[in-house]
Amino acid sequence: MIAPRAWMFLLLAVAILAGNQVWLSHLRYELSLGSQKLAAEQEAIKLETSTLRLEIASLTRPDRLREYARSTLGMAPPRPMQVLHP
């Protein structure tokens, strides 16, 4: 014969476990949303990185730098004998 107090403890334990289960499900759901958001952000950053890499490559094109050095900075290619420590 189980005492009424034992029944109370059993019920309380079941209630706590059920509550935890609900809370864990909620937590899992929230984490999943967060993870989806982060994955989308990661994708966006990857895309931005490739766009920026492309932009860097376009801006540092050797012919563009050559033209900029000549026309804006007034530079000219050094003669071989002017390059002492290449």
Partner: peptide, 14 residues
């Protein structure tokens, strides 16, 4: 050659 050799670190022999 005169542009690439210095770029590759090959000095002109002076």
């Amino acid at each position: 050659a005169e542009s690439v050799l210095p770029y590759l670190g090959v000095s002109a022999r002076i």
